[in-house]
């Protein structure tokens, strides 16, 4: 799923953080890393791509769909169907166990397509991420690394065409970091999905097809215009 950004401008409020991207093209199936200092707009662009927020001007096209032109409901439906999002802070629901957290997108969206038996999919995905024996555990009893893996598992389960990951390896040890990356790349490849990942870990950048530095997109003050 290719991505095209054209004359995008976004700000959270007058005089506050502002992101300007004149032109950005990402090919379908590419593995792309977003790098740059904190506050440079990496996470914001992920949220723009997912349709969680919309730009003030410009267009964000994901696949053939101009996401920012969709209604709230349309963007939500598009996100459910096509995009997997691994959040930096995991975004797990603490009163649910691991299994229910992974299944949550399906519980919330009955329209989500189910491949094979969803239960066996959950088991397989959990085995791949070394979570098979944790499926019935409450998520607040898991380590940070385990919680991160649950979040990844949840994002991968619906086999998204675009996988957005906000520092998914930030809480992992080196061994797990490589394993998770292998998983992400493998899943992206098998589903012919595009992988866009925010990272601060420069040691990982060799594994990506393309690295986009956000320093050039960030305009700290509107007055600069």
């Amino acid at each position: 799923m290719q991505i095209a950004i054209d004359h995008l401008e976004f700000e959270y409020g007058p005089g506050r953080f502002r992101l300007c991207i004149p032109d950005l093209q990402i090919e379908g199936g590419a593995r792309v890393a977003f790098v740059g200092p904190s506050g440079s707009g990496k996470t914001t662009l992920l949220r723009l791509l997912a349709g969680i927020v919309t730009p003030q001007t410009g267009t964000v096209t994901v696949g053939e769909v101009p996401v920012n032109e969709l209604t709230d409901t349309g963007r939500r439906a598009f996100r459910i169907r096509h995009i997997g999002f691994v959040f930096q802070d995991f975004r797990l629901v603490d009163h649910l166990d691991v299994r229910e957290n992974i299944l949550l997108p399906y519980r919330l969206n009955e329209a989500l397509p189910v491949y094979d038996s969803i239960e066996s999919q959950v088991k397989q995905q959990a085995e791949r991420l070394d979570l098979a024996d944790k499926l019935d555990s409450p998520v607040d009893e898991l380590s940070q690394g385990e919680q991160q893996r649950v979040a990844i598992c949840r994002a991968l389960l619906p086999r998204p065409e675009l996988l957005l990951a906000d520092e998914p390896t930030g809480n992992l040890d080196p061994k797990n970091k490589d394993r998770i990356l292998d998983q992400l790349f493998q899943q992206a490849e098998s589903a012919e999905a595009t992988l866009v990942m925010v990272t601060h870990d420069h040691a990982l950048l060799d594994r990506f097809d393309r690295v986009i530095d956000f320093t050039k997109f960030h305009k700290p003050e509107a007055a600069d215009e």
């Binding site: 939500r76 999002f85 629901v93 603490d94 919330l108």
Partner: peptide, 12 residues
């Protein structure tokens, strides 16, 4: 925060 998470996961 929980409700925001549900929204981010596609919950209307």
């Amino acid at each position: 925060r929980e409700m925001e998470t549900l929204f981010l996961l596609g919950c209307s």
